[in-house]
């Protein structure tokens, strides 16, 4: 299958990357090139094959329920591009 300009537009919005109208055609071609290439996987018979979930075959570790972190306002806001007091700020969201 092959991506149209509209598909690219939609994906670009999903990924929140502004794609200027004039780039869409070129982008669609690039992406189609790569997608067309990876589609050779269709040749492989994967019936009764489990998808790989993790390369390490160990049990998931679990942490104890203790507060060991937080109270580091200075550290979590140190790099904020638009700090407002203790808050991060973004363009007003209407809901």
């Amino acid at each position: 299958m092959s991506l149209t300009k509209d598909d690219v537009q939609k994906i670009a919005f999903l990924a929140r990357i502004r794609a200027p109208e004039e780039r869409l055609e070129a982008l669609a071609q690039e992406l189609n090139g790569i997608i067309g290439w990876v589609e050779q996987l269709a040749e492989v018979n994967t019936d009764a094959v489990e998808p790989m979930t993790s390369v390490v075959d160990i049990a998931s570790p679990m942490r104890d329920d203790v507060v060991t972190d937080g109270a580091i306002l200075d550290k979590v806001t140190a790099n904020a591009p638009d700090p407002h007091g203790p808050f991060y700020a973004v363009p007003k969201v209407v809901e």
Partner: peptide
């Protein structure tokens, strides 16, 4: 307090 129950 805002953003004080926040880890990295």
């Amino acid at each position: 307090e805002p953003n004080t129950h926040v880890s990295l």
